[in-house]
Write a protein that binds this DNA or RNA. Sequence first.
DNA 1: ACAAAAAATACAATCGATTGTATTTTTTGT
DNA 2: ACAAAAAATACAATCGATTGTATTTTTTGT
Lengths: 338, 338
Amino acid sequence: MTIHDIAKALGIDSSTVSRALNDSNRVTKKTKDKILEKAKELGYQRNLLASNLRKNKTFTIGVIVPRISRHFFSSAIAGIEEMAFEKGYKVVICQSLEQLDREQNLVETLVANRVDGVIMSISMETLNYKHLDILKTNNIPVLFFDRHCDIPGNSNVLLDDFEGGYLGTSHLISKGCTRIVHFSGPRNLMMYQNRFQGYRTALEKNNIPFDKDLVLSSHLMEKEGALLAKQLLSMQKQVDGVFSANDVAAIGAMQYLKSKGVLIPEDIAFTGFSNEPTSRVIEPSLTTIDQSGSQMGKLAMELLLKQIEKKKESISPETIILKPSLIERESSNKNNKS
Amino acid sequence: MTIHDIAKALGIDSSTVSRALNDSNRVTKKTKDKILEKAKELGYQRNLLASNLRKNKTFTIGVIVPRISRHFFSSAIAGIEEMAFEKGYKVVICQSLEQLDREQNLVETLVANRVDGVIMSISMETLNYKHLDILKTNNIPVLFFDRHCDIPGNSNVLLDDFEGGYLGTSHLISKGCTRIVHFSGPRNLMMYQNRFQGYRTALEKNNIPFDKDLVLSSHLMEKEGALLAKQLLSMQKQVDGVFSANDVAAIGAMQYLKSKGVLIPEDIAFTGFSNEPTSRVIEPSLTTIDQSGSQMGKLAMELLLKQIEKKKESISPETIILKPSLIERESSNKNNKS
DNA sequence: ACAAAAAATACAATCGATTGTATTTTTTGT
DNA sequence: ACAAAAAATACAATCGATTGTATTTTTTGT
C-alpha cells in the first residue's frame, strides 16, 4: 500500500496524493476527500521511513542513561516520553550500563539512525568526551541532564547539586551533628564534585573543620553503603551524622547499622539524596533531597525540542538548573536541637 | 557524506562502494581497503534511513508499557534493551499510561515507523483488541508480556499468576491464617483473574470456605491500599491475613494499619506480589512473589527476535510461562504454626 | 465568448542505499 | 598467446514519499 497504489486506483498522480495526505492547499477539497476515502478504503499507512529519508528528519530522540531500572532514570524517561508524545516525537532508549565503550557504541548507532537530537546522562566511566564529537559533526543537538559534562556549546538540565549538598549538610548541622561523614561518588562526575563542595561549604559556614578522612568515595551501591557503614564503626573518631550523595548507599548503610544495634538518628543521623521510593518506606524514613526525575525529563525534552525546531542559525545552548528541596523525615530527627 | 561521494572521490561506482561497505565477496580486497579508507577519511556514516527503506527492515522494536517508571516495567525494559543491544536492535519505548486511546495511538505510530516487532503489556483500560488488528494487517509480530490478552496467534511471556496466587495464599494459610482478604486488580486483566483463581483454589484445597466479600478490587495503587485497609478495619468479620495482587497496595495498606496500631504480622499477616524494591525495605519486610522483570524482558526480546528472524513461513506463536517463587519475609511470620 | 490570471494537477528529480543484470576485466588452462 | 570461464565492476531500477517546476484546467472580468 503506497501513495502510488492510491494514485493508480484513482487515475491521478502520486504527487497529488502526497499533497492531499499532507493537507496541502494546492489540492482541491473535492480531490482531497476522494483521496482520503480511498486511502482509508485501502488501509493505507504512510511509510515514515521514506518520508523521513526525504525530509531528513526522523521525529526521533535518542536517550542514553546509565541504567534504565534506576528509579531516578526511569522517572526521567517517563517524563521525556510524555513530553515527546505530546509533541509528536518518539524516543529510542539506551542504557550505557556505566560503560564507556557501550556509550560510544550507542552514540554511533543513534547518529547512524539520524535521530533529531540526543538526551543523555553520561556514564561513570566517561572521563573524556571524544566519542561525542560525532554528534557535533553531524549537527545533532545534545542535551545533558543530571550528570553533565563541561564541554561548552551544549545544553544542560541539572539539579543544583552544590545547593543540594549544602542543604543536606546544613540540615544535619542544624540538628546538632558535628562529625559528619560524606559518602561521595566517582570523582569524574561533576554532580558528585558539586555535592561534595556543598557539604564542605556547609561545614565551613558553620565553623566545623573539614576533615578529609570523613569523605568516603565509592560507586554508591547498596552493598558499598553497607561496607562504608562497617568502616564507619571502626573509625576511631566518633561520627554522629552521614550525608550520603545518594539514597541507595544511605539505605545500605542504615540497614547494616541497624543490624548492629546503632540507633538512627540518635547515634548517627542520615540524609540521603534523590528521594527514591524506598527512602520513604525505610524505618526510620530517610531525610533526603528531592530530585524530580519526571520534571527534569519533561524540561529536558522541552528544551531540546525548542532547539531542534528553531532554525539552525541559532542553537544557543542553555542551562537550566533546578533548585533542590529538602524532604525532612525521621532519619535526621535528633532531639538535641531544633 | 554518501556512498556517492566516496564513489566519486575514487572514480568508481556507488554500487561497488555499497557492496564494499557491506563486506560483500563481490568486491576484491584491494578495492575494499581503498573504499574503507576513503570512508574513514571522509567521516562517512551510513544513512540507516535509506538502508532501512530499501531493505524494508528497521532493526527497531516497539515497546509499549503502561508506565515506564513502575519498577517492574523499568526492569523489564532494561532486560529488553540489553538483549536488543546484544542482537543489534534498538528499542522505541512508549507508555500508555493505562489509557486505551493512547495505546491505540502508539500502535499506529509504531506501525507507521515500520518497527520489526512489538512487545507490549496492555493497559488496564484495554477491553477489546480491535486496535491491534493493524499489527496483523502489516504483518508485524507482537509479543505480550506480563499482562497478556487471549487473542490466538500471538506469543506471550508470562508469569504463572495462578501459581503465584496459589503460593502466596497457601503460604498465609500455612502460617495459620483462616480469614484471608484478597486485594485484586481490574477484572479485564487476565493476570489478576489468574491470581484470584490461585487464591481461591488455595482456600478450597485447605477447606477454607470462599467468601466473595473478602475480595476487594481496585487499581492497586498505594492510596487505594490505604483505603482498602480502612475498609478492612470496619469489617464485622475479623481478618487475619491479606494476599495482595501487588506490593504497592499491600504497602499502602500496611502503612495505614501500622498507623492505627494494628500489628503485622500478629494481627494481620501480609503477602504481596512483584518483589518491588520497597517490599524489602518496609518494616516488617513484605513477603512477596518474585517476578523478575529483567529476566522476563530478556526472554521476551529473545523470543520475539527468533520469530522475526526466521522466515515468515512459520511464525508459530509460543508462550513461555515463568514459575514464580515465594520470598518469605517478616510480614507473614506468625508464630501460630510452622 | 474570450483572453488573462489563478488554481489545480502532472511531470520529473530527489533523499541515500541496495541489488539484479549487463559489461568489463582478470584468471585459467592449453 | 588465446579462448573460455570466472571474477570484479558498472549500469540501472528500486524502496516510498516529497517538492520545485511545467502544464492543464478552472475561474474571473469584460
